[in-house]
Amino acid sequence: MIHVQELSKTFTDPKRGTRLAVDRVSFDVRAGEVFGLLGPNGAGKTTTLRLIATLLKPTGGTATLNGFDINREPAKVREQIGFLSGDMGLYGRLTPREILDFFGQLNSMDTEHRLKRVDQLIAMFDMQNFADVRTDKLSTGMKQKTAIARTMLHDPPILILDEPTSGLDVPTSRTIESAIVQAKKAGKCIIYSTHVMEEAEYLCDRIAVISDGHLKMTGTMDELRAATGKHRLREIFLDLLGLPADVSPDKE
């Protein structure tokens, strides 16, 4: 469903010069699969997701989403995706219901279906108590539920989630994780980035580790274990980045 081929992005800044943010990255994500993109800050995760979501134009390579090319048919690509940015991006002066309704209109959903779907998502994410409260008055968890609901509103075949559980408490994270699992069961193709190793280990069918714009390795947990000789994802991750393994305080 997602086919990324030799995708590259170079940023040119008059002050900072040229910077290669993503360097010939290739991977595939299938329908009904959760694909985790891991990497340290500034590794190129967000840029990769932005390229796939057609927010940025690649300087090399391409990607196809549900058969639509990001370079040739960006508008069609955007119809196939639900995109959650790392910053949630909610309108503070609007209520969750108004935000969902607005994005439903942007996705050309007819009024009857849109209103029904908004109610359905409000119930699904347990948002009844704050659905009509201005978003700038809500807690981080409530905002993230709204953002996830907005991403799933038009029932897209592909979900692109950039750190969906960042800064959330355990119960809210669980709600989000549960939504991701349900979406996977419904056959959605999910690509998401995270810094939470436990979550990636638990949710992802396959994981890719990216560093300095390069894709270090892609595979299932078993494949990553076999290649690195490490057991936990945290250890695998550090090993792939060339960083020393954890040091136990007792051993120091």
């Binding site: 057609t54 927010l55 508008a75 955007r78 995109f83 959650l84 940015s85 991006g89 996705n107 907005r150």
Partner: peptide, 14 residues
């Protein structure tokens, strides 16, 4: 500044 543009740009609106 409020980081709301990204989700907007990722919508099907041209």
């Amino acid at each position: 500044e409020r980081k709301t543009l990204e989700a907007f740009l990722a919508s099907p609106a041209q």
